[in-house]
Design a protein around this nucleic acid. Sequence first.
RNA 1: UGGCCCGUGGUGUAACGGUAGCACUGCAGAUUUUGGUUCUGUAUGUUAAGGUUCGAAUCCUUACGGGCCAACCA
Length: 556
Amino acid sequence: MEEIKKESLNFIEEIIENDLKRKKHTTILTRFPPEPNGYLHIGHAKSICLNFGLGLKYGGQTNLRFDDTNPAKEDIEYVNSIKEDVKWLGFEWARELYASNYFDAIYTLTLKLIKKGKAYIDESSAEQIAALKGTPTSVGKDSPFRNRPISENLALFEKMKNGDCAEGSMVLRAKIDMSSPNMILRDPVLYRIKFAHHHQTGDKWCIYPMYDYAHPISDALEEITHSICTLEFEVHRPLYDWTIAELELFPSRQIEFARLNLNYTVMSKRKLMELVKNNLVSGWDDPRMPTISGLRRRGYTPASLREFAHRIGIAKRDNVIDVSLLEFCIREDLNKNAPRMMAVLNPLKINIINWLKDRTEYVSIENNPEQSEAGHREVPFSNELWIEQDDFMENPPKKYFRLTPGGIVRLKGAYIIRCKNVIKDFEGKVVELDCEYISESRSGRDTSGLHPKGVLHWVSAKHAVEAQCRMYDRLFKVESPDAGDGAYKTHLNQDSLKTLPKIYGEPALKTAQKGDTFQFLRNGYFCVDTDSTDNQLIFNRTVTLKDAWAKLAAKG
RNA sequence: UGGCCCGUGGUGUAACGGUAGCACUGCAGAUUUUGGUUCUGUAUGUUAAGGUUCGAAUCCUUACGGGCCAACCA
């Protein structure tokens, strides 16, 4: 009998399996609760994969619920982008919901809370409330309005709802414990007045519940079994439980896990928003952004992001994931799935001097060595070719096995050539190379007996497709741009985007469509950018290939 | 000077009182018509001190380190 080692569970899965086993629940229901006040980033992707993944794994479901309790900061634009991103990641929600769907229910429940004497209207100013709140190390003091009669609370709450009170003039507070060591429990604000237009409810309401109050109620009304959020909400859990208990609702349980941190980038919505607003990037979907839309435009696939989320795991300790893991995940996917193409990014012209000027020969090159069923394509070879400037050196260092004066090299899928003559301009810069091809060296029928160490990619000049290339690198030049004071913007990598206005690709690239991904042989993975037009093909570099030579050369 | 949470190689994450494992990264080598892929090898770890136990990364205590908490934000 083969012993099957069962995959270890993360702590949330353990809780769920335990709940299922003990029959606390017969099925599970999770939710992904974004606030529509910005675009989703890869940290949200972690949460999405967790919540939807759990639903899938345990045969339950997951709701998408917009946490839209603050109309001042939220917008329908974000609602739409969030839906698009979740779908693109490959998940389907059971129900599309909004916390605002429950505004009536929450209002009714609140009446019950007030009648129980568990909430009161406080007419103190925000400053007064803050002053009486105390500090983490000193207790708070009761508000002078704390013990007003229930009937008065009811009447004032009614007035508040009817729009008879000015913004900031009063709030509804829970009556819990002003001396609690947990600041969250010092009579938290439940409702505030905001005369703001809401993207879902329009102008129906001028009072809006706070997150801490609306969230447990929303969870409970949906009968969410496991309400998963990030660690900073841990201290809010007693309030979450208090709300459910006082209102006698479905016992949803909040569980917290550590949010994702990635090095060489920033992850807070506020900072990402600043980058966008200050035009430090081209938008939320700039390919350098850690947003889901940015990664999508960069050429990351949903599968690679899901794999990444799986590999980083779920735990409660703070973590900083190395971007190299993200890069590993996309390379792994694209290596297996992206068709290979040849494209010369920094061209150097070579003349095959013993090749007839008008002759074109087609050579057959595999589309993907990782997939035999991907087949081959025909690539034209002629007397004028482009190769990469880096692939020729007049005075090569040791272990350089590309083209050198008098040296030989294999042109991928075609012939071996020998460099016969180096042509320079008046400044001494190499501008062209005269080479001879070895006629009996054609790939697949090579009888030359030669074994060059180097194999170069190339493009026939007269058949080349021209395109623009955007070479992306990490947005920040330091590992922790967030460290220290708010000076993260000073760590921006000025070279995070280099545009190559004219690159030469093999003819098959002509029909490439937006979003298509390729491996440009020896250069990296690229995808067709959404800015492309019929007249101008634009590629984004998703990620480079691992480059052993670059490493060696850098060492000297 | 408060409360809560968390400390396992460089980075993540397992081991649920019984041989500290896996992945990424690094390094070295093999293979290769991509200096890619693949394969092999290798380096680095239980924060510390006590205690319980035949046996502790795991349980207890203390210390140390990190994080969170004082929006009418989420």
